[in-house]
Computed example of a mutant assay.
Amino acid sequence: MRSIALVLFTLAGAVSAQFGFFDQMFGGGGGGGHQQQHQQQPQNAPSDSGLYRANYERTHCENYLCPDTLACVHFPHHCPCAWPSHEDKFELAEGQRICVSKGGFKAGEAARKVELARKGLL
């Protein structure tokens, strides 16, 4: 009887050690008295435009620096859209351009709507 109790006690200790190891390896909060490393959480961006202005001032461009993407291009209407996989670019009169969301439209639908808006029909 005593040997059965000793075997059960030993197995319980091994199982506890095994799962304690997995908790530490995979971030389970059981720490088992060991000091856990504190990882620093990413900080939110500041609520002002200082970060943008600092990047703008650091960017070198001999031609035209696009104010929204900080791309260096020869002419303002050559500025790319910030999210080209989600936006279509359209050049307007006088060297201007706009970026229109592709979201939910059929292929070419954004272009059709821009053209209707140019004609005053939308």
Rank of each mutant, 00 (worst) to 15 (best):
G31E: 06
H38R: 10
Q36Y: 03
G30K: 04
H38P: 02
M25V: 11
G27M: 02
N55K: 15
P46H: 04
H34C: 00
L70N: 02
Y52A: 01
D23N: 14
M25H: 01
F26C: 03
D68R: 08
Q37F: 02
C61D: 13
M25Q: 12
H38D: 08
C61T: 09
P46T: 13
H60F: 05
G28D: 03
H34I: 06
F26M: 10
C66A: 02
P67Q: 11
P67I: 13
D48P: 08
N55I: 07
R53D: 14
F22M: 07
R53Q: 15
T69F: 01
C66L: 04
E62N: 13
D48R: 04
G33P: 00
Q39F: 05
E57R: 11
G50R: 15
L51N: 13
D48M: 09
G30V: 01
A54L: 11
N55G: 01
L65K: 15
G33C: 00
F22R: 04
G29W: 00
H34K: 13
S49L: 14
D48S: 14
D48K: 06
G29A: 10
H60W: 03
Y56N: 05
T69R: 03
C66V: 05
E62H: 10
P46S: 14
G30D: 09
L51I: 12
N63D: 12
M25P: 03
S49V: 12
S47T: 14
H34M: 11
Q24V: 04
G50A: 15
G33D: 01
L65W: 02
F22S: 06
D68Y: 05
Q43H: 10
T59Y: 02
H60Y: 06
Q37D: 02
G30W: 05
G50D: 12
N63R: 14
Q35H: 09
H34P: 02
N55T: 07
D48T: 15
F26S: 03
Q36C: 05
C61R: 04
M25W: 03
Q24G: 05
G32A: 03
L51W: 06
P42E: 08
C66Q: 05
T69I: 00
G28R: 04
Q37V: 14
R58K: 15
T59F: 03
G30P: 01
G28V: 04
C66G: 00
F26L: 13
Q36H: 06
G27Y: 03
M25I: 10
Q35L: 12
A54G: 01
Q24H: 09
G28C: 02
M25K: 08
C66T: 04
E57V: 04
R58T: 10
S47N: 15
G27C: 10
M25N: 03
Q39G: 02
Y64F: 15
S47W: 06
E62Q: 13
H60N: 09
G29K: 06
S49A: 14
G50I: 08
Q37C: 03
L51G: 11
Q24A: 05
G33Y: 01
A54W: 01
S47V: 13
N55Q: 15
Y64M: 08
N55H: 13
F22V: 05
L65C: 08
H38N: 07
A54R: 12
